[in-house]
Nucleic acid binder design. Structure first.
Lengths: 183, 183
DNA sequence: TGTCGGTTTAACCGATCGGTTAGTTGTCGG
DNA sequence: CCGACAACTAACCGATCGGTTAAACCGACA
């Protein structure tokens, strides 16, 4: 709290006066982020009709948001790691609704024959987790390559990364003409 | 450190006497986990020949380890979230080698025609991230369903989850007989 | 038996952290 | 001009945390 106040250029007591205690401030940040996710996915979903297009748009939205707001996937990872110990109930409710979106898209895709019968929850976790994980991993790049990892010299643009992630995930989820997949 | 000593049933000063300070203790834990990952992946890799089998085995190994040792994916997520701020250099080096394994498998699969030309690093992050994320997300289940998410009543067995994750990822990475995929 | 080195313990220390408080400043209506 | 109330500040408080210390314990070996 001291550091937050300092970097915000305000007196620490003002945080408590205007926002409340640490948990309230944290809830404000998390809920603000969730609202951004809702607004952005809603906007992107509106212009996509097919389940394939919607799922791709969903993945791209998550990844773009994660890359443009680096602190958010950081918070999300820490929160998931702790089992949501610090998440206010309202945040969990709205996260459940986002999960419901993916669930619906996958169900639609399965009904229309576009998707293979994959587990919607696993699909959702891979989509969101892929975006969040990818965004966070970028910060490890420099340290990893210094440790001897074979990484390409330059970081691909966010759009390129999104394409590659979506490529793997969607080609795994989309139904193929022949070659059935019970596995 | 107080709580660690208490739950370990030893006097706190003994931690400092035998192990060292907090960073040393943490490094011990992280390196122990990485050694476990190395041993387990090595064991599984030895009995798999094809790139497909190796990649599947890799994913299953990560997921199984993450599910049987819940504290490890927790630590990994926090560490990735912080950009590896607390990772000792040795840990980063060995993590880079694990990354190299995936890179090699994907390259082999591409050379043998089993895989589509996917980004090996993205593939690695999805494989590891999928396992880590999945394992951590299980702890959110109860709270999410209480918040109204549509989740199945019972938790699938780890092996089932591993199958579903691998199903999506591998069918996205594996080459298909016809129906090429430039996307 | 004495003592010497490694081991263990309870108590302690300074720094940090989340949060509060008493008091000051600013401002707006009467 | 002044009272009143919101906005703001510096200083403070108790709890917690990582880490240390001085003394006690204990087995081995002379």
């Amino acid at each position: 709290m001291d550091e937050i106040a300092r970097r915000a250029g305000v007196n620490k007591a003002m945080l408590y006066y205007h926002v409340g205690d640490k948990a309230a401030l944290y809830a404000e940040v998390v809920l603000g982020f969730i609202a951004l996710v809702e607004a952005e996915t809603g906007r992107r979903m509106a212009s996509e009709a097919s389940p394939t297009g919607r799922l791709r748009a969903l993945q791209e939205t998550f990844l773009t948001l994660a890359l443009t707001h680096p602190s958010y996937p950081q918070i999300m990872m820490r929160e998931i790691a702790s089992g949501g110990a610090n998440l206010p109930a309202a945040a969990l409710q709205r996260m459940a609704q986002v999960l419901g979106n993916t669930h619906r898209i996958v169900s639609d895709g399965l009904a229309s024959g576009e998707f293979r019968p994959v587990d919607p929850i696993v699909a959702h976790l891979l989509i969101v987790g892929g975006a969040v994980f990818m965004a966070n991993a970028l910060r490890l790049r420099d340290r990893l390559s210094a440790a001897g990892a074979e990484l390409p010299a330059e970081i691909p643009k966010p759009a390129t990364i999104a394409d590659r992630v979506t490529d793997i995930l969607l080609f795994g989820i989309a139904a193929r003409p022949a070659a059935g997949g019970s596995l």
